[in-house]
Amino acid sequence: MSKLSETARASGENKKGIIKRSFKAAFPNTIPIFAGFCFLGLTYGIYMNVSGFSFIYPMIMSLTVFAGSMEFVAVGMLLGTFNPFQAFIMTLMINARHLFYGISMLDKYKGLGLKKIYLIFGMCDESFSINYTADIPDDADKGWFMFFVTALNQFYWFLGSTLGGIFGSLIKFSTEGLDFVMTAMFIVIFMEQWMKDKQHISAILGLGVSLVCLIIFGADNFIIPAMLAIVLLLSVLKKPLEKTKGGETA
């Protein structure tokens, strides 16, 4: 279904070997997510447990929604009065950043057959970041690599939130601060992208605009204004940015 890499084809390897190598290449990239998602998932599962939900809830949410911050917000919604319209609008607003991921991935997900559907379904912040920036080795298959990154990340989240939902308040924390692993990962990914780019205008723009919007609109409302401002400024800067050609961005 997906194209095997040239090297793999030349060596006449079978499909199984390529899948295995793709897994081996993908796994190390997901280790920080393993730490982060097990911990955050556990926190989420415990939160649902102490809010009076069976572990079935976090389990199903981790398999279907698979968008961390949204799942936390959903707990409050499920405890409140029934308001499907509000749930719809709030979800769109909280998850609007996925639109940017999709636009960035239009090319990379091209021609991956059925895998593409799962890759889009499971495109959380972390899977997008890794799949966009990772240097996929020549002997691995791009489609399988991205598939394993996405599936492993979802598995970690599923594991954490289900265990948290089952054991709930029994778990004692000595892990304060472990959630910084996600921040650390985003910083590293930001730096990797910076080193690849020839122009740094969009990187600085993203950082600066988001910070300004966070200060003006506050933690709960800054994403949408930040996204609008980023697109607006990138549109204004289209001419100068396109001049710095030569594979400037990835």
């Binding site: 950043r97 940017f100 991921y101 636009i103 960035s104 912040d125 970041s129 966009y132 920036t133 921040t183 985003f186 910083i187 990914i189 930001f190 992208q193 910076w194 780019d197 740094h200 969009s202 990187a203 600085i204 723009l205 993203g206 950082l207 600066g208 605009v209 988001s210 910070l211 966070l214 994403i223 930040a226 996204m227 980023i230 990138l234 961005t249 990835a250």
Partner: peptide, 11 residues
């Protein structure tokens, strides 16, 4: 967008 999005994610 990606470079800007990674900045957004850091914040």
């Amino acid at each position: 967008l990606p470079a800007a999005v990674f900045g957004l994610l850091v914040i």
